[in-house]
Nucleic acid binder design. Structure first.
Lengths: 144, 144
DNA sequence: ATTATTCCTATTACATTAGTAGTATATTAC
DNA sequence: GTAATATACTACTAATGTAATAGGAATAAT
């Protein structure tokens, strides 16, 4: 139950874009430097985010990436879903016919509960929220 | 972010033991039949659970497995931890030196929040709770 | 002894992840 | 219109982890 680097890197990259919001496009080269990720790998992650409609690319010289929406309009579960894949802790939550026990399966209900809790957190946080947290990181505005 | 079969099978197996609590040891053969898991694979899972002190084994004829504690005394996070590995969504939550950003890393705080939510749910549920849920599965005693 | 069961170790097939590499294409600057 | 700068696309590879399968050893009951 570890996060893939895809997701971790991806969120960090998108966070860079959020901090850059309103300015000129940000190049992968810059993100790669700041976040210590290879440009080539970042390209692939951005391709995923782009096809999901979360970021926009500007090609050519002075090009780069920008967010497709304002940071306050992008919820973390959107980013998470397209990088980590749809958060399906167990198959049977998606596919009713996956197993015969499905009707009264108590473990299924359990995993649904866990999954819901995760989605709930990610849905409640926007990129803007994360940017704000960064700004006053000495004095966090939330409570774990 | 999928659960391993290790964890899914393991929880189902342990749940069988919970339902059998108070009776004679339950054989893997039986669990395997009921849960449609190979005996050989179950053996490995039980070895993990055994070394974690969650179950006890009785060897030889009429042997089998029993829970090491009453079902009400075993919380799901105990089972989960030893099967899925310690729930570490990201390395830096365990290892402070893992990355230089650790001090004011906002994504780290995010993953900590997610991790805590999961652990919190698993900690609040015992095997006995699951057994009870099974009994009145037509009319669940909880709300997702 | 025979049978039933767990115990231990090795092996295998497969999928995924994380990353590298090379070339093509678009845009800007001069 | 050429050079420089970026993204776009596709293929490949190495390492890792997962989900088993297999064979035989040890132990206990009858």
């Amino acid at each position: 139950m570890k996060l893939s680097t895809r997701t971790r890197y991806g969120i960090r990259a998108v966070l860079e874009l959020a901090e850059n919001h309103g300015n000129r496009p940000l190049q992968l080269k810059i993100i790669a430097q700041r976040q210590d990720i290879s440009v080539k790998y970042l390209e692939q992650l951005m391709a995923i985010l782009k096809s999901a409609g979360l970021v926009r690319s500007i090609r050519g010289s002075k090009g780069g990436y920008i967010l497709a929406k304002a940071p306050g309009q992008i919820r973390l579960n959107e980013v998470f879903n397209c990088l980590e894949g749809p958060l399906t802790t167990v198959e049977c939550l998606e596919d009713e016919d996956y197993c015969a026990r499905t009707a009264d399966c108590v473990t299924k209900q359990l995993w649904a509960q866990v999954q819901y809790a995760i989605i709930n957190i990610l849905q409640s946080i926007t990129l803007q929220d994360l940017v704000n947290r960064t700004k006053n990181s000495r004095k966090p505005d939330y409570q774990i």
